[in-house]
Amino acid sequence: MPLLSCITTSFNEGALLMTSIRSLLAQSFEDFELIVVDDGADPETQAVLDRVDDPRITVIRQANAGLSSARNKGLAQARGHYVCFLDADDSRPPWAFATIAGIIARDAPDLILCRGALSEARDTPLPFYDTPRFEEIAEHCPGGVLEADAPEAALVRALALMIEPQSANKVVRRGLWRDAGLRFPDTHFFEDIFFHAGAVAAADRIAFAQTPCFAYFRRYGRPQITAGSGARRFDIVAVTRMTLETFARTPGFTDPLQRAAVFCNCLKLLTWCGETIGHPNRADFRQITRAMIRMIDPAYLQIPDPVYDRLSVPDPLRARITELAHAV
């Protein structure tokens, strides 16, 4: 069994698919398997896959069923002690797996959360969006590992819940995935927020990799699926609800810090979607957002201000939360 399984899903990336594969084959740490789930890819993309020859790669073919279902399928086939994800057109720096393997050897955590890099649309390389959160975490968790009995455990866990819900930033112990039943919400986009909250809530020991271990690309060459402004955006409302109702069943829910963190992270994405969804769909989006807020546990709406302060929630997001709570 390899130490790591990396799951990549492939749709119609064509040659861009080599971005991820090349970066993985260039890793200095070599004990990993790469599972590529061909989610109904077009012939051009399949041809790219056919040209890759490495015994560590397994291709699984499925009829197009979306990213969530494809990643779940990859998870079910993974054999590594730890699993991670990488989108077809993203990459990892050559040191990523070595860094991760080092953390595993040292700390044997349930979950590793990694810093990342961002390549902006103008090809500008930058630290990933949530780098300030990682700096906060480093401050409150100097050892780099969150232990259940650490003095600031609740705050650090809340901060972990607030980092970007990116799939490439997580390395999950496979046993945790299995026992906690972690999965991406089938048939939905905005799937990462659900998985992120579930993984952080279920993990006892969380380690933080304060080194960029993935690179996320914003490109004109290929539209990000979540960047569409059509009815697909309604998915965020459903996924928010599913995330909140699932988190409400975990022990962390009773902690206002963690509860607020999950809620804020969902609402941040929801607000962005509501502000960028196409105008023909806006009224419907607002309507089901209100319906959704009425269906969630009311405790999510009753967060005292000092909690927001502690989590450094930006003012516009606080205002949005207040507005939604009153609209109900």
Partner: peptide, 15 residues
């Protein structure tokens, strides 16, 4: 029609 999108974890057997 957007109510058709309002999914719940209770409708996902695996969750």
């Amino acid at each position: 029609p957007a109510f058709a999108w309002l999914d719940s974890a209770m409708m996902h057997a695996d969750i």
